[in-house]
Amino acid sequence: MRPDHPIVLITGASSGFGAATARLLAAQGCHLALGARRVERVQALADELAKAHGIRTFAGAVDTRHTASVDTFVAEAAEALGGLHVLVANAGLASGTFKLWETPDEDLEAMMRTNVEGVVKTIRAGLPHLRKAGWGHIFFIGSVAGHQAYEGGGVYCASKHGVKAMAQSLRLEVCGEPIRVTSVDPGLAETEFSNVRLKDDSKAKAVYQGMTPLSGGDVAECIRWCLALPDHVNIDELIVKPTDQGSAFKVHRKA
């Protein structure tokens, strides 16, 4: 049975989609377990939201590339908050714009271990708590790159195609249980994503010049809406792009 105030675990909650989702769901009365490698950021956010909305929060360090880190974070969050109902497997990144044969091991491993392995580890650790609670919702954060490949994004696109496949597989595997599975797949969104990918703030800013990108809050609203729907409704896949973006590689830019 759906609780009045679900307990939501979010990875990658220190910025971008994760932080925006935490803010929006806190305003809805959800209790929050926030994790990221930058633990000081999630701790500050957790403290702020607990004070502003009177919710219970837990903040912890988590590196989703490492099984022990994920298992510890999820277990401590569930113990501190009395269980878990919702998982938002948000931690992810792009690193570089290399042609496939030029991709350094460091960037290859960062994307595949975070975007694919990290999602598996988060769900593997969190799902037993949702089953114990008797009601749950799992969110994958995919990308339009999981639907369309583009030059200079081979490994990142592969990782997001992997996210799409995992979401579709899990949807089948938990069918019949009171657990919904949703993949939210954004297009161009102005967060720290391009700063991390390009390692150059001026180049990152240029990605969004002449067009209006999505914000973290826009993607958070998609998550809030899917979560709020009646229990018999499951949004399997939600592709969301800014109006100025027609595809992964077609963007209208004003002069």
Rank of each mutant, 00 (worst) to 15 (best):
R2P: 04
I10S: 06
A13Y: 09
A13E: 10
S15H: 14
G16N: 08
F17G: 03
G18M: 07
G18R: 10
A22H: 03
L25M: 10
L25G: 05
A26F: 02
H31Q: 10
H31I: 09
A36W: 06
A36C: 03
R37F: 07
E40Q: 13
E40L: 04
A46L: 05
L49I: 13
L49A: 12
L49P: 13
A52T: 10
I55R: 08
R56A: 13
A59K: 05
G60H: 02
T64A: 08
T64N: 15
D71L: 02
T72Y: 01
T72H: 13
F73S: 06
V74Y: 01
A78L: 00
A78M: 00
A80G: 13
G82V: 02
G83I: 08
A89T: 11
N90C: 06
A91F: 08
A91R: 01
G92R: 09
L93I: 12
S95T: 13
K99C: 15
K99L: 15
K99M: 15
K99I: 11
E102H: 10
T103G: 11
T103N: 11
T103M: 14
P104I: 12
A110T: 06
M111C: 07
M111R: 09
T114M: 07
T114D: 05
N115K: 04
E117G: 07
K121Q: 15
I123C: 03
I123W: 01
I123Y: 00
A125K: 01
G126V: 00
G126H: 05
P128I: 03
P128R: 04
H129V: 04
R131Y: 00
G136V: 02
I138N: 09
I138G: 04
G142D: 07
G146L: 10
H147W: 13
H147G: 01
Y150E: 15
Y150S: 14
E151K: 12
G153Y: 12
V155Q: 08
Y156E: 03
G162N: 06
V163I: 12
A165P: 08
Q168E: 15
L170E: 01
L172T: 06
P178A: 01
V181I: 14
S183T: 11
S183W: 00
V184I: 15
D185H: 14
E190S: 11
E192S: 12
S194G: 02
S194I: 03
N195T: 13
L198R: 03
K199C: 10
D200I: 08
D201L: 14
K205P: 06
A206C: 00
A206D: 12
Y208K: 02
Y208V: 04
M211S: 09
M211G: 05
T212Y: 08
T212S: 13
T212D: 06
P213D: 09
P213S: 03
L214H: 02
L214N: 09
G216W: 03
G217V: 05
G217K: 04
E221Q: 15
C226E: 02
A228L: 02
I235H: 01
D236G: 14
L238C: 11
L238A: 02
K241P: 07
T243L: 11
D244I: 01
S247A: 09
S247R: 07
A248V: 11
F249Y: 14
V251I: 15
V251D: 07
V251C: 08
V251M: 12
R253Q: 13
